[in-house]
């Protein structure tokens, strides 16, 4: 793609007749125009752009949120704080900033399972969960999660006892939800770090459960 050194300094004699090329879409042309101009003017560095994408794809991801959840599993005071004022409790672990404000944590119990959907683009808590997967923003997910949450969860491989109620929360730019999944059985005495490895992105939007260590053992990974 565009990343990498671009020819700079060329004096462009454009005449503003705007037509799509055979092998770049209109959108790709707009992105290239922005990127090449911003690089020339020194606002952005191509290597930094690659690093940002890699960071969000692999490092930030959902690991920050996983640490929040793991802390809430081992520290009842922290859990209480998280459920009372999630933004502050999350910030105390150093995760704040880009769309990490206005957080609300909702806890899963035997009685209630929480599922989050997002009807706008700006609702996803980046510092905690990283970037949303493509399917999460898709219209089918958002519609079906509201109409038939149990069916959607079943499709995702999550079967809940019939007595467990499902609550669907609409994340917006004003309120962004973090699901605190139930701590799996058989994890007594585990360190926070080890517990965090059981917390998946899906479990923090309610589209999954925390990983059951027995399933890890069965795969020989525990």
């Amino acid at each position: 793609m565009v990343s990498g050194p671009l020819p700079t300094g060329g004096d462009i004699h454009g005449h503003d007749h705007d037509h799509d090329s055979g092998h770049l879409t209109d959108v790709a042309l707009r992105v290239r125009a922005l990127e090449s101009l911003l690089i020339e003017k020194g606002y952005v560095d191509p290597a930094a752009l690659d690093a940002i994408v890699e960071t969000y794809e692999t490092k930030i991801g959902p690991r920050n949120g996983a640490r929040v959840v793991a802390r809430s599993w081992v520290d009842p005071d922290y859990r209480e704080w998280l459920l009372d004022d999630a933004t502050a409790a999350i910030k105390s672990l150093g995760y704040a900033g880009r769309q990490g404000e206005h957080m609300v944590a909702v806890e899963n119990t035997g009685a209630v399972h929480n599922l989050v959907v997002c009807t706008l683009c700006s609702c996803y808590p980046l510092p905690v969960l990283g970037l949303p997967p493509v399917w999460y923003k898709s219209a089918p997910y958002r519609s079906r999660a509201v109409i038939d949450p149990r069916g959607v969860l079943a499709e995702f491989g999550v079967s809940l006892p019939p007595e467990t109620k499902i609550r669907v929360w609409d994340s917006t730019a004003e309120i962004r939800y973090l699901v605190v999944p139930m701590r799996p059985a058989g994890t007594d005495g585990w360190s926070e770090e080890r517990l965090a490895s059981l917390v998946t992105r899906d479990s923090m939007i309610g589209a999954g459960l925390a990983i059951d260590p027995r399933s890890l053992a069965a795969e020989g990974r525990a």
């Binding site: 005449h15 007749h17 705007d18 799509d20 090329s21 042309l29 707009r30 125009a33």
Partner: peptide, 14 residues
């Protein structure tokens, strides 16, 4: 500048 640069990329792609 954005419009001109976009047109330049379109010509370059072609």
């Amino acid at each position: 500048a954005l419009e001109q640069r976009k047109a330049a990329w379109a010509r370059a792609a072609e």
